[in-house]
Simulated scan of single mutants.
Amino acid sequence: MPDAALTIEPFSPSADPAALADLRARLRATRWPDAPEDAGWSLGTDLDELRALVAHWADGFDWRAQEAELARLPRYRARLGGLGIHFVHARAAASAGPALPLVLCHGWPDSFWRYQKVVPLLTDPAAHGADPADAFDVVVPDMPGYGYSDRPAGAPLASPAVAGLWAELMAGLGYPRFGAAGGDIGSHVSRYLALDHPDRVVAVHRMDGGLPVFTGDRAQLTAEERAWFDEVGAWGAAEGAYGAIHRTKPQTAAFGLTDSPVGLAAWIVEKMRAWSDCDGDIGRSFTKDEILTNVTLYWLTGTIGSSMRMYHANGALPVEQLTRRVDVPSGFSLFHGDILRPPRAWLERMTNVVRVTEPPRGGHFAPFEEPELYAQEVRDFFRPYRTAR
């Protein structure tokens, strides 16, 4: 039974009509920047493509329909660490076998939205052509300062603290043992669940190995690892400006991004395009309505600033935290279109690796881009650990 100390309340938000009217007014009053001819995406978000998206946002996008679609997931709020935390809690279908509890950890720039499509595939595999014995009880929390979870009033929480909240949440839901999975910052949170709660996490599945931190002599690394370090450095120089801002001066950017929905969309959409497996055509990975649902969640909850501040908190973690080795059995699905895919040698250096796969499709947002493929990866990985719950 759930811990009596955890008070859980059903949650089904409905946006204030005045907030939606204000959003449309702001979109229609946008003061657009200029852009060099044929700049495309080379300098950041493409002006013409964003104009088209914003026109749909102002006059074609139906937030109420998207709100209703999100409400199909069973959603709740609970107090954890003094914060109201929003989470999906979807139990396995009654026809399924014994379910493995699984906490799914999202990243940036998203929220529980990342796992919207995959939850039914994991809770009721038989309805989707898979083995009913692979069913999960799925929990998808919004991190503090993201989505419908509270924004910390004081210092932002780093990944180890969020992992502690998720361990408390799973205990309060009646799950003494569970699996953990995530990508992006959610991979970081999943890692700390395994590091700090190894007696409770049966196994951990991640989509990436995180940014490399190595305090020894680089000569001790394999040639493949050294090449990857160089790749990470080159990527950071070309693509990492957003992360440097998030880590150092997130509040400065938050003023503009919280005031301008178009600025917010530009900040998020550029990453959705660059990090997905779309070969430069974002429409291959997301519909306009899917993009705008993610962006509108940030707009209506006012969480872009608080979400960015988590980078600042993580940037202050001591190196000793970043170099700890995970002993809990770990699996990695390195999707074809994701960024900075680490070599197996690095994963084995930092974790107790039991499985590494390279799915042929999908990118950084694979649970949303390729939900069937992601669900199969998760089912396959956790199958040997179901008896450990």
Rank of each mutant, 00 (worst) to 15 (best):
G280M: 10
G362C: 06
L80C: 03
R191S: 15
E9C: 05
M310L: 15
L102E: 01
A316M: 14
C105L: 15
A5V: 12
F61E: 01
W108I: 03
A96C: 15
G40L: 01
L300Y: 05
W346K: 07
L193V: 06
G84N: 08
D137Q: 06
V189Q: 01
D131E: 11
D16M: 12
A244G: 08
T222C: 05
A29P: 08
A266T: 04
I8F: 10
H86A: 10
H205V: 08
D124W: 12
D230T: 13
E320Y: 10
F368L: 14
A180H: 01
G240F: 09
E290M: 12
L43M: 07
G209Q: 02
P10Y: 08
L47R: 13
W228M: 05
A244N: 11
V328D: 05
A161D: 07
Q376S: 15
D22H: 14
G337R: 09
P261F: 07
G145W: 07
N352L: 03
T222M: 09
V269Q: 04
P318N: 12
S260A: 13
T323S: 03
P125M: 04
P101S: 05
G182R: 02
A180L: 02
T301W: 02
T287F: 09
Y298D: 02
P329S: 04
I8E: 02
L211K: 11
R386Q: 05
H89L: 01
A153E: 14
D150T: 02
D48E: 15
A180M: 05
M308H: 09
K249A: 15
D196C: 02
D259Y: 14
R79S: 14
A15P: 07
